[in-house]
Design a binder for these strands. Structure first.
Lengths: 224, 224
DNA sequence: TGACTACAAATTGTCAACAATCATACACAA
DNA sequence: TTGTGTATGATTGTTGACAATTTGTAGTCA
């Protein structure tokens, strides 16, 4: 963001936006597991602000569906059941499919290069058997994919969906996918973009999502 | 919502949610045209609440992308340029396509019936030449389409996109589409669902969206 | 012992006042 | 006249305190 020497607006984002980002990360990585109550006073203290800005930030997450509100009881981290897992991956398929179509209509070569770099990180993580890093690189891959489409709306939708995806991963930490398969499926996506082969791209993307959801929902719903 | 006799939770939704709904409607129907500043004190007075809950509600709309914040200056209704129109319809295509796939996998007959009822309203509005009612029925049609898919996430995405669609319609009020075409395209969607013909359904949906965006962006971007 | 009532603590919902920042108008000098 | 600097007014950002509601606990009575 911003070449060296470029002048950027000094106006940093609002306090609510900053806090919302922090909360998103915390929820994403399981610092606040599903079902946790977000105690206002305590959180406000940790962030060093009063309850006002904190509540504004939390309302953003409610709108995103990451928190749900029970009147006069509090805000709780949304719990994801097996139906949600299906819903998340179905929605992701729709969003990322649209992103792929946009990429093919603009600059597939450039996109393939950028995605190739991210894919290299996946290969590296898989090579040393770091499953956690592999999972994170996986998310970065899809985040980059949507970002390359250049659509503000797809990007916003995808961000929330990827956070929920990460929550699923945390909840089912026990059972990761075979790293070789995972790397291979992403490789296929990069190759299809590189080749600008729309039919194959949509096919491998669909397969990738179907595999993921099948794996995640084989046994044991995260819980209700 | 709720059969007669059904007991519903007395707990109404949070104040922020109620205000957010009202603001959404107001933005949707042009009460606050794009670029308008949302004066906190004045709005709080109109809603009969203090600035706290109002700010919480507005943060939800910021998250949705309907408002954007300029620090220490205020919140403004987002203005949509011609690129946004393309982006909105592209995203809608992705979301509604996914919704169509879900409907075909569950109960197309039931869905076709529900959509047929909404379509009848479009026919009625077109018959008496009420373009405003026709436009609203158009939105209800697509809202219902996504609702029938039964996906909370698609529904949330679609709601925001349809509000933005309505904003475009208001901004370009001069130039409506040919009512006959509009009714016909929606009829084709209902028929394809009824027939459970996936290939044809996706085709007519794509065509419907492409037509709309082409019509909206022929001349005169709403403004920058 | 069990159930119901009343009280108390804690948390959320709301508000009005204070502090910080920005836009406008005006005076003044070059 | 143009540009700069200042003062003023208004609006947003933030805070701490107060009101309303729920939950848990203790106590009483059948």
């Amino acid at each position: 963001m911003g070449q060296p020497g470029e002048l950027e607006p000094v106006n940093r984002e609002s306090t609510a936006a900053i806090i919302a980002d922090q909360l998103r990360s915390a929820i994403m990585y399981g610092t606040f597991p599903p079902g946790t109550q977000m105690a206002e006073a305590e959180l406000a203290g940790k962030f060093g602000v009063s309850r006002g800005p904190l509540r504004e930030a939390m309302q953003r997450l409610v709108q995103e569906g990451l928190l749900h509100s029970e009147r006069h009881r509090g805000l709780f981290v949304t719990t994801l059941d097996v139906d949600d897992v299906h819903d998340i991956y179905m929605a992701r398929t729709g969003v990322e499919r649209a992103a792929c179509l946009l990429i093919l209509r603009t600059d597939p070569k450039e996109a393939a290069e950028r995605l190739g770099e991210v894919h290299a990180r996946m290969v590296g993580a898989a090579g040393i058997g770091d499953l956690r890093a592999l999972g994170n690189a996986d998310l970065v891959f899809h985040e980059t994919l949507v970002e390359l489409a250049g659509s503000a709306r797809l990007e916003r939708m995808a961000r929330t969906l990827l956070i929920e995806t990460r929550m699923c991963m945390t909840a089912l930490e026990k059972k990761y996918r075979d790293p070789v398969d995972l790397v291979g499926e992403h490789r296929a996506i990069v190759d299809a973009i590189q080749a600008a082969d729309e039919e194959r791209l949509l096919e491998v993307l669909d397969a990738h999502m179907a595999d993921a959801v099948a794996r995640l929902s084989t046994d044991a719903a995260p819980e209700s």
